[in-house]
Simulated scan of single mutants.
Amino acid sequence: MANIQYYDVILKPVITEKSMTDMASKKYTFLVHTDANKTMIKEAVEKMFEGTKVASVNTMNNNGKKKRANRKDQGYTAKTKKAIVQLTADSKEIEIFEGL
């Protein structure tokens, strides 16, 4: 496994209708590095966003979709990993989602 620093773990937030409704219950969804595990994701969120305390982390792996360029050439898109982070009740909210 590669040496992944905490700032390399979280790639970008996932902004969908479902993830926006989950923010009311302090659940935030992120695209994360495919080699990151739950403890690495928890550390990254707590270090990158001051005042946050993570209660739990759920992850899901998404395999790449099959794509074709023409009749002969076919391949797959890159696989991704998503993490849904649940914050504790006394935790601060994450600032990047406040203006949305």
Rank of each mutant, 00 (worst) to 15 (best):
A2M: 02
N3E: 07
N3I: 05
Q5F: 04
Y7P: 05
Y7W: 12
D8S: 15
V9C: 13
V9R: 11
I10N: 10
I10Q: 01
L11K: 15
L11E: 15
K12S: 15
P13R: 06
P13E: 13
P13N: 12
V14H: 01
I15M: 12
I15L: 14
I15K: 06
I15Q: 07
E17G: 14
S19F: 05
S19D: 06
S19I: 06
S19G: 13
M20D: 07
T21E: 14
D22A: 15
D22V: 03
M23N: 15
M23R: 14
M23Q: 14
A24K: 14
K26C: 05
K26V: 08
T29F: 01
T29G: 04
F30D: 08
V32P: 03
V32S: 04
H33N: 13
H33Y: 06
H33T: 02
H33L: 06
T34V: 12
T34A: 03
T34Y: 05
T34D: 10
T34L: 10
D35R: 08
D35G: 04
A36G: 10
N37R: 10
K38Q: 09
K38E: 10
K38G: 04
T39A: 11
T39F: 13
M40S: 14
M40G: 14
I41W: 10
E43R: 15
A44K: 04
V45D: 00
V45T: 02
E46V: 07
E46Q: 15
E46I: 03
E46L: 11
M48Y: 03
F49S: 08
F49W: 13
E50A: 11
E50M: 07
T52D: 02
K53I: 01
K53R: 13
V54Y: 07
V54L: 08
A55Q: 13
A55R: 15
A55M: 13
S56H: 13
N58Q: 11
N58M: 05
T59N: 06
T59W: 02
M60T: 15
M60P: 08
N62Y: 09
N62M: 11
N63M: 09
G64I: 06
G64H: 08
K65G: 06
K65T: 09
K66V: 12
K67A: 04
R68A: 08
R68Q: 08
A69E: 05
N70E: 07
K72H: 03
K72F: 04
D73P: 00
Q74P: 00
Q74L: 04
Q74S: 05
Q74G: 01
G75M: 03
G75A: 06
Y76C: 02
A78Q: 13
K79I: 00
T80K: 14
T80H: 06
K81Y: 11
K81D: 11
K81W: 11
K81M: 10
K81F: 12
K82Q: 11
V85A: 09
V85K: 01
V85H: 01
Q86G: 05
Q86F: 07
L87H: 14
L87P: 14
D90G: 08
D90K: 10
K92C: 04
K92L: 12
E93M: 00
I94C: 03
I94P: 09
I94N: 05
I94F: 01
E95Y: 01
E95H: 00
E95N: 03
E95S: 12
I96K: 00
F97T: 00
G99S: 15
G99N: 14
L100C: 04
L100F: 09
L100Y: 08
